[in-house]
């Protein structure tokens, strides 16, 4: 949220001392030949969405600052030599955008091949879907000589696990742990190039790090590299059944901030807690109590 997005008609302006509010004008962008209008400051991705064009995104998230690293969302913008990451390029008046050229298709397909041959994306449903959609051919890479992320899963506590062999280095967890939400900075990108890893300082365990177990990193991870222990355990027992789960929105039972919780329930037991990323209170973020403090309602004597 930025200062420029308010106040508006719905948000009363105070009579005195009101902040300078930039009046946002609209810009018109052509997406595959269709003109769409978006607010100044909105992105090419927003324009694509407005034009009804589906765009794959991995490192983009509504609650994190775009690092535009995955490049799966690239589009062609007239006048630009290279492709442009739609998730982070502001829409400009008169931009002519193509989303389905050979160049775009090729880059998306290759990004998906690269990710699919580097990390275990089997639990990343979106990515698996796009691999099909873009005809990414993982089979053409010689297995013996193709390097992958081979990290072992880190199980260091009862709350969440880290399986970096699934990680696509999208930076979202780092952003969520950092200035985009949590300001704990327990994890950062370390190393360089293909050997980059999300890591605590010197790879110390999470309980030894600054981590405060808000789980906000888990919430934004697109690949299940970060996974709640409950889900991890159920998957291990082949008993993770999203199709049998209900999601009910309610309000956290702890402090008086009033965070919205989405309770994911399977067999009358909470198996995961998330928060809606579009709610003005949480923006998808919670603290350790809201995220993990639900056990007390299901520590049932009969069990």
């Amino acid at each position: 949220m930025t200062a420029t997005s308010r106040p508006s008609a719905e948000r009363p302006i105070s009579p005195v001392g009101e902040r300078q509010v930039a009046i946002r004008t609209k810009v018109t962008v052509s997406i595959d030949g269709t003109d769409v209008s978006v607010l100044e400051g909105q992105t090419v991705l927003d324009a694509c969405t407005a034009a009804g064009v589906d765009t794959p995104t991995i490192c983009y998230g509504p609650t994190v600052t775009p690092v535009n690293a995955c490049r799966v969302c690239v589009v062609e913008v007239e006048g630009s030599r290279t492709l442009v990451p739609s998730c982070s390029r502001p829409a400009e008046e008169g931009m002519v955008v193509t989303t389905d050229s050979d160049k775009v298709m090729h880059s998306r397909k290759m990004v998906l091949e690269f990710l699919g041959t580097s990390s275990d994306v089997s639990q990343a449903d979106d990515i698996m879907g796009w691999i099909d959609d873009y005809d990414a051919d993982l089979g053409r890479y010689d297995e013996a000589t193709t390097q992958r992320m081979t990290d072992e899963v880190k199980i260091e506590d009862d709350l969440y696990i880290r399986a970096y062999d699934r990680c696509v280095l999208c930076y979202k967890c780092v952003e969520a742990c950092g200035e985009d939400a949590q300001w704990t900075f327990a994890i950062a990108m370390s190393g360089r190039g293909f050997d980059s890893r999300i890591s605590t300082e010197f790879g110390v365990t999470l309980p030894d790090s600054a981590c405060v177990y808000c789980g906000n990193c888990v919430a934004v991870c697109p690949t299940n590299a970060l996974q709640f222990k409950t889900e991890f355990d159920l998957r291990k027992m082949a008993d993770w059944r999203p199709e049998d789960q209900t999601i009910t929105q309610t309000v956290c039972s702890y402090c008086g901030v009033g965070c919205n919780l989405d309770l994911h329930v399977q067999d009358n037991a909470i198996v995961k807690v998330t928060s809606p990323s579009d709610h003005s209170i949480t923006h998808g973020n919670l603290c350790v109590k809201g995220r993990f403090g639900y056990q007390y309602v299901q520590n049932r004597p009969s069990a």
Partner: peptide, 14 residues
């Protein structure tokens, strides 16, 4: 949280 009746229900690593 407060007298712990709720928060004791989960194993907090911290």
């Amino acid at each position: 949280y407060n007298t712990g009746v709720q928060s004791d229900g989960y194993n907090s690593p911290i």
